[in-house]
Amino acid sequence: MTKSRPSSGPTMHDVAAAAGVSQATVSLVLNSASGSRFSDETRKRVMDAVQQLGYRTNAHAKTLRDGISGIIGFLGDAVATAPFAGKIIEGAQERAWEDGLLLLTMNTGGDKALEAASLDSMLSYKVAGVVYAGMYHRRLDVPEALSTVPSVVLNSQDRKLRLPSVAPNEELGGYTATRRLLDAGHERVAMINIETLESELPAAVGRYNGYTKAMAEAGLSIRPELVRFGSGNELDGFTHTMDLMTDDNPPSAIFCANDRTAWGAYQAATELHLSIPRDVSIIGFDNQETLAPHLRPGLTTLELPFVEMGRRAVDLILQGAEPDGRVEFMTCPLIERNSVTHPKEKP
């Protein structure tokens, strides 16, 4: 007895019949063809029919026809290890899926040979574009091969200003953090940065510039003894806070330029039997989910908008990602918890 061939599943003809439209209309809806004229109601009928029937497009045929696949490449230097990687990938993947595209993610660990091989593989799949992500904000030397496909630098910037980039607005974030402390009534506000200004690290420079701008607007001078430069780790936060708070004239508030530094500041306050925020207010930067909400008291901090940045990078690819070198800076929202209050009255 001859076995019957398995069904290949519902066809575009089936979708058209279920939606009450032509196959041409189904094709235009599924391919998001620009300039096509059909109503939102028609689009909904087609998409409802696709879902009900379980229709899947033929990805191989689409690649042969259009010269590109239904895939966007995501190439990162620490996708598997960075604490924020999940959020940034979540945003990119979510936005790609809204247009029926898949995200092909590769982690290079900073290995340039693996990066080149991964990128070559992505391009061989005829990806619709590539998101080139840094897991912390810096200026990157972008591979030349990215110039052959719509590409966006994410959470960093193209050092040569060729590709468009999406990055957090570090200066506005630093300004917002300092302004929050000033609005609470603090005047002697210290800052513990995550790198030196000479490093030219955008996060360190931008957050410091935001701090100085807010202080200047409040008519307060920048006191060198209140500005410290660490490496963004817990130990530096502890050491600098111990030094600041044992001074004859300690600050009443500290802006820590990342949450790990703030964690160290909390430990120093405990060591010195100081209460947060009664004796010293502390504000951080990053809103690291595994840390900021779990400190006692919860840390008021600025959130890096990773989900939104991931979405925006894919948006730009879908729009063609012109290689114009522009940098889009995204706002870091203030996350209020319980580590900031008004300064303690002096006896």
Results as ranks from 00 to 15, higher is better:
Arg159Asp: 07
Leu161Ala: 15
Leu163Ala: 11
Ser165Gln: 09
Ser165Lys: 06
Ser165Thr: 05
Ala167Met: 12
Pro168Leu: 07
Pro168Arg: 04
Asn169Glu: 15
Asn169Gln: 08
Glu170Lys: 05
Glu171Lys: 08
Leu172Arg: 14
Gly173Cys: 05
Gly173Ile: 06
Gly174Trp: 08
Gly174Cys: 05
Gly174Leu: 06
Tyr175Trp: 11
Thr176Gly: 01
Thr176Asn: 12
Thr176Arg: 13
Thr178Ser: 05
Thr178Phe: 05
Arg179Ala: 04
Leu181His: 03
Leu181Phe: 03
Leu182Thr: 02
Asp183Val: 02
Ala184Asp: 09
Arg188Ala: 03
Ala190Asp: 03
Ile194Trp: 01
Glu195Tyr: 06
Leu197Thr: 01
Ser199Val: 00
Pro202Asp: 10
Val205Trp: 04
Gly206Gln: 03
Arg207Lys: 02
Asn209Leu: 12
Asn209Pro: 00
Gly210His: 04
Gly210Cys: 04
Tyr211Asp: 04
Thr212Leu: 02
Lys213Tyr: 04
Lys213Ile: 00
Leu220Thr: 01
Leu220Arg: 09
Ile222Phe: 00
Arg223Gly: 00
Glu225Ser: 11
Phe229Trp: 12
Ser231Ala: 12
Gly232Lys: 05
Gly232Glu: 13
Glu234Ala: 09
Glu234Val: 14
Gly237Leu: 12
Phe238Arg: 10
Phe238Asp: 08
His240Met: 14
Met242Cys: 15
Met242His: 14
Asp243Lys: 13
Met245His: 11
Thr246Asn: 13
Asp247Gly: 15
Asp248Trp: 11
Asp248Leu: 13
Asn249Ala: 15
Pro250Asp: 15
Pro251Asp: 13
Ala253His: 11
Ile254Arg: 03
Cys256Arg: 08
Asn258His: 10
Asp259Tyr: 12
Arg260Met: 15
Arg260Leu: 15
Thr261Lys: 09
Ala262Ile: 08
Tyr266Ser: 07
Gln267Tyr: 13
Gln267Val: 01
Ala268Gln: 09
Ala269Thr: 10
Thr270Phe: 09
Thr270Gln: 15
Leu272Asn: 07
Leu272Cys: 06
Leu274Asn: 07
Ser275Val: 07
Pro277Lys: 09
Pro277Cys: 11
Val280Cys: 14
Val280Arg: 04
Ile282Gly: 06
Ile282Glu: 10
Ile283Ala: 07
Gly284Ser: 06
